[in-house]
């Protein structure tokens, strides 16, 4: 599996994403600068977490207009897998690649803690090594992860099996609608989620339940 991790100004989980991919797949991903016009020919594009453009204006808003996004939009349309984690999820919604938006946490504060998630959909490139209903623990670390979309959009996401992860009952850290933590696009090749699977790949850090996501991709895309 060939991967690229996009580096925006003030991405800060780019190295973590690099290391997790390297760790699970054995191959280092290419680091691609946001100002480039083209992503190399890869099977997976990762938009990492961070504070692109300082989260100024709105989280992800300015990164969504980076030069590289034109090519990412095109490749996503062609079916290349795209994974947006945290700020990467925010960028994907701002870029229109995923529906809805991420608003300020309901508690108004940044929240960093491990949270329990329920895998709501295992029929995807990203989640095929999980079973539906499986509980996994990923850390969250964000101030604006409160998923919002109209009821119509939410109904449709649920009806089409596009809610990949939900916060377990009582664990919702940010007020997200219907406990949604991560969603797929219509073609199911784009996943955005607020929790960090790349921070859950090392037993020393308390959880390895993120590995299955990268393994799912590795098996499917290699």
């Amino acid at each position: 599996m060939k991967c690229a991790v996009i580096v925006f100004p003030a991405s800060n989980c780019d190295r973590d994403a690099h290391d997790a991919i390297m760790h699970v797949t054995g191959t280092p991903p290419q680091m691609v600068w946001h100002g480039d016009s083209e992503v190399p020919d890869v099977d997976l594009i990762v938009l990492p977490g961070g504070f692109s453009y300082g989260d100024y204006l709105r989280c992800g808003a300015m990164a969504a207009h980076s030069r590289i996004m034109t090519d990412i939009r095109r490749k996503a349309g062609e079916g290349v897998a795209v994974l947006g984690i945290c700020n990467g999820f925010q960028i994907l919604t701002e870029a229109g690649l995923l529906p809805g938006t991420l608003m300020r946490n309901a508690g108004l504060k940044f929240v960093c803690r491990p949270v329990e998630l329920v895998v709501d959909e295992s029929q995807s490139l990203f989640t095929r090594n999980y079973s539906r209903g499986e509980r996994v623990t990923f850390p969250v670390a964000h101030g604006e992860g409160n998923y919002f979309a109209s009821d119509d959009v939410l109904d449709r996401l649920e009806a089409e099996g596009r809610v990949a992860f939900r916060y377990a009952e009582g664990e919702n850290p940010n007020g997200s609608a219907r406990n949604i933590a991560g969603i797929l696009n219509e073609k199911r090749n784009v996943l955005g989620l607020m929790p960090h699977p790349e921070r859950a790949c090392d037993p020393l850090l308390g959880s390895v339940s993120g590995r299955a996501m990268f393994q799912s991709l590795l098996e499917k895309l290699s």
Partner: peptide
């Protein structure tokens, strides 16, 4: 207090 700090970024906070 400390849940408002990202203490897990860089994946080395053992």
């Amino acid at each position: 207090i400390w849940e408002q700090y990202d203490y897990s970024v860089m994946t080395d906070s053992v």
